[in-house]
Amino acid sequence: MQLTLGPIPFFWPKEQILAFYECLQDQPVERIYIGETICSKRREMRTQDWLDLAQMLGEQGKEVVLSTLTLIEAESELKQLKRLCAQGQFLVEANDMGAVQLLSQQHVPFVTGSAINIYNGRSLRRLQQAGMQRWNLPVELSQNSLRDTLSQAKELTKQALPEVEILAYGYLPLAYAARCFTARHRNLAKDDCGFCCIEYPQGIPLTSQNGESLFIMNGIQTMSAKRFDLLDQVSTMRDIGVDALRISPTQTDMSGVIARFHQAITEPQSMTTNAQHINLVDADSHCNGYWFGQPGMDQRAIELNE
């Protein structure tokens, strides 16, 4: 089972981005997804900067995947997407069907992100035909749905299944809009946003009027306020046939999170993993509902390994 790191969802200064990746050199993540997936106006890192970073990480022995923008509207965004899809050196993660089209046209294998809607085995096989070699489960689907999707796909053809990746830790990406909620929060027009989301390196928390944490506003994206965390589900995921676990970057304790997941993968019987985990998890800040077919915000009690 591979441990991967998703793209940074927030807008961080260039130095911070580079420093973040520099620290990963000795971390046990095998694959790293990089690139701007939320807003094309975030240009601390230009396309060339991302490509240079990809080169550097590649030289350090990491598998590098270039992750593409999720909501593509403007011609300039399409142009940028084309450049990433045509670079030929690194694998690309398609987060919009436009990217799927460009990559399949060039007969280049690709990964699909969780915003590509694959809800059943037939869709899985159809995108595999188009060149998809790995897919990320849509965030709202459960383990049962994943099992059914894989067995339906197996019934359809005998071909090997594409690799399965699952978001196992981080804030859930829940929605994308034309509107920038961060600019709106600052009473700024999107066209005149002043790139203000750089001031919110963990987004803007949104709570209900009685104080319940609900969402995080991150530019045009809405995320869950709770961290999705499937640390105690690693063996279940392995049994289902999951090939890779994704950690979505946040500002806090990345190396701790990576270490815990690494241990859960390599030493499945380790009780320390569970003990540490139980101390960390509480229903106010963590959630795992989607995995169990419940509302995403729910937190079901941690399962202990025997």
């Binding site: 709202e140 034309a178 809405t222 989607y290 509302p295 995403g296």
Partner: peptide, 21 residues
């Protein structure tokens, strides 16, 4: 709908149903 339709999971985050599911 203010979110890009088909890619909004807010409803299933709070309840157990979304437009997609």
């Amino acid at each position: 709908c203010i979110m890009a339709e088909g890619r909004c999971y807010l409803s299933s985050y709070l309840t157990d149903q979304s437009p997609n599911t």
